[in-house]
Simulated assay, not measured.
Amino acid sequence: MFAYVLKRLGLAILVALAVSMIAFLLLRLSGDPAIAIAGEGARQADIELIRQTYGFDRPLPIQYLDWLGKSIRGDFGDSIYFKTPAAPLIFAKLQTTLLLGFLALAFALAISVPLGVLAAIYRNSWLDRLCLAVAVVGQALPNFFFALLLIMVFSISLRWLPVSGSDSWLHFVMPTIALGYYVAPAFMRLIRAGMIEVLEADYIRTARAKGLPASIVIFKHALRNAVVPVVALAAVQLGFLLGGSVVVETIFALDGLGYLAYQSITYKDFPVMQTIVLLLSVIYVVLTLASDIANAWLDPRIRVA
């Protein structure tokens, strides 16, 4: 187990470094940061002075190594637009994004697990087709369009929920539904397929032959083994929710990391953009590593392989 964890940890570090390098190069190719700092209409002499002051005239590999070294020490630079250090600004917004991500994941599991179990138990019935239809709609419906529908129904028509902001738990209801419903179909299909496979296993037939109640057979024996792959998918989907919340946070004006990323892109705030990409990539890698370790602990066959 220890050797498996070390192997996965080394791979995770390499992935994080590769992502940080790619993000750094892509952001540099998107525009000249010296021009963004100087502003439109600045003289060429001023731009060259800024380029020399911040070291933008050095080769890109040297700039990347310098930025990576400072990032490891916790120095992510200063925001060009907000005129404050990037790290405190980002970590202040991260709490809202983490809360939204966990709420959306909980909502997705709350609707996908029951639907997946029902679809597996009543396979090829009208209930199975109804559950699959719910999954198809959730996968095909863009979350920004679904978010606008929620606003039209629950905010404009019924006036039950606030349109924007993050002051109370009511402000998170529609963003949670809009973000969580988009990832729920993947869980539902995985649980359905796992339950169908497990329900045909020999130990399930043995449990039924012993006369155990159907609820114990399904929830204690079948579902317990069918949800093992969900652990890995949940970690991956949580990383996707954190990184993909930009649109939803922008629509509902949530004061989170996604909305900050939208602002930094709009104002070409390179230090903030780089830090957000690095932070989200590290979180995604850590979640994937945690899911691999959890799966290896739950299923010994993984670490043996």
Rank of each mutant, 00 (worst) to 15 (best):
S112Q: 06
S112I: 06
S112H: 11
V113P: 03
V113S: 07
L115Q: 07
G116C: 04
V117R: 00
V117Y: 00
L118S: 05
L118K: 05
A119F: 06
A120D: 04
I121Q: 10
Y122K: 06
R123A: 12
R123D: 15
W126N: 09
L127M: 12
D128H: 04
R129M: 08
R129K: 06
R129I: 12
L130W: 09
L130R: 07
C131T: 09
C131Y: 03
C131N: 12
L132H: 09
V134C: 11
V134F: 15
V134K: 03
V134A: 11
V134G: 06
V136D: 13
A140E: 08
A140Y: 09
A140V: 11
A140P: 14
F144C: 14
F146L: 14
L148V: 15
L149W: 02
I151P: 05
V153C: 08
V153K: 02
V153G: 05
S155F: 01
I156K: 00
S157K: 13
R159E: 06
R159Y: 05
W160P: 11
W160Q: 07
L161F: 01
P162Y: 07
V163K: 00
V163M: 05
V163D: 01
S164H: 01
G165Q: 01
S166C: 06
D167M: 05
D167P: 11
S168I: 04
W169Y: 03
W169I: 08
H171M: 00
H171E: 08
F172Y: 07
V173S: 06
V173G: 02
P175A: 00
P175G: 05
P175T: 03
T176S: 09
T176Q: 10
I177F: 02
A178M: 03
L179I: 03
G180Q: 02
G180V: 03
Y181W: 10
V183C: 07
A184C: 03
P185F: 04
A186N: 06
F187S: 04
F187L: 09
F187K: 02
M188K: 00
R189D: 02
I191W: 09
I191Q: 07
G194M: 11
I196W: 04
V198E: 14
L199C: 10
L199G: 07
E200T: 14
A201D: 14
A201H: 09
A201K: 12
D202R: 11
I204K: 00
I204L: 08
R205C: 06
T206H: 10
A207I: 05
R208T: 14
A209K: 02
A209G: 13
K210P: 12
G211T: 09
G211S: 13
L212W: 08
P213R: 10
A214H: 13
S215H: 12
I216R: 15
